[in-house]
């Protein structure tokens, strides 16, 4: 049986094709303004990569912000359950999952069977989300994929006191004007977002071991800052960005 999991986020669309519990292919593309169009394109590319036809797919589950626009999916499931399932599949021992998404950040607590026991999401503000990192990387004129490494090179992280994305950006401009170096400012930015996440972790009650899911897990600066503040290792996997899509594909297999 082949199943498809689609995770249509606010920034990227991720897809995983699963065959008998094995990942056949995975793929991601930027979403743009039309999430349904992105999902269709993503599927075409997935099928081409896997050398299968759409009719070979028995079941499709969609998740992510765009999930309700995917009318051809058999079912939609929220990101919380999907990330929980995906990470439990990849890293069965994990009890706490942190996912920093484009619009939403979440901390998910799993029970020993991999079911979601509890979760907490960020408040309405963008400060604790992936969008914050995006805006800040642009302010620092750095490509997002190198942003984390830059943070690791900071020796005396700058103090970013604002919790607001917009105000933090102007705060950074004044730090630049003061002559603070890029590495230190970037390091401060990463600590700032990590502090927001850590307060969410504490609110829901951390259960080690902790892992990160979602695209931001690829950012070593965030992982490093979280480890420092949580005083516990934060585990990640190269497939972290596909956590939600994989979970969706696994859920499609179940029913």
């Amino acid at each position: 049986m082949i199943t498809l999991g689609l995770d249509i986020g606010s920034l990227t669309a991720k897809g995983v094709l699963l065959k008998e519990g094995q990942i056949l292919v995975k793929h991601l593309i930027p979403v743009g303004y039309n999430s349904k169009k992105a999902a269709l394109l993503l599927m075409d590319e997935l099928f081409e990569k896997a050398k299968i036809k759409q009719t070979d797919v028995q079941k499709t589950v969609a998740t992510g912000y765009g999930r309700n626009n995917i009318d051809f999916a058999d079912k939609t499931v929220s990101e919380i359950i999907c990330h929980g399932r995906g990470i439990h599949f990849l890293l069965p021992e994990i009890r706490t999952i942190i996912d920093i998404g484009g619009q939403d950040s979440k901390v998910i607590i799993l029970d020993d069977k991999g079911n979601v026991a509890n979760f907490v999401m960020n408040d309405k503000c963008a400060a604790g989300t992936g969008r914050f990192l995006d805006v800040m990387a642009r302010a620092m004129e750095t490509e997002i994929q190198y942003f984390g490494e830059l943070a690791l090179r900071g020796k005396n992280p700058s103090k970013i006191s604002s919790v607001c994305t917009v105000f933090a950006e102007s705060e950074i401009i004044s730090l630049v004007a003061k002559g603070e170096n890029r590495e230190d400012i970037t390091s401060g930015i990463h600590l700032s977002i990590a502090r927001r996440i850590v307060s969410m972790v504490k609110r829901v009650g951390m259960k080690p071991p902790v892992a990160m899911s979602g695209g931001v897990a690829l950012n070593v600066g965030v992982i490093d800052a979280l480890q420092k503040l949580l005083e516990t290792p934060v585990i990640t996997t190269p497939l972290a960005q596909y956590g939600g899509a994989l979970g969706a594909a696994l859920l499609a297999e179940e029913k």
Binding site: Y65, V77, S78, E79, I80, I81, Q103, D104, N115, V116, A117, N118, F119, M121, K124
Partner: peptide, 24 residues
């Protein structure tokens, strides 16, 4: 102006899924 439908919807869906899972 203080209400964001898609954010609230995602939270309610996830919350209900957790409740359903616990019932199982």
């Amino acid at each position: 102006r203080k209400f964001s439908e898609s954010q609230v919807e995602t939270r309610i869906d996830a919350f209900m899924e957790v409740i359903k899972q616990r019932r199982k």
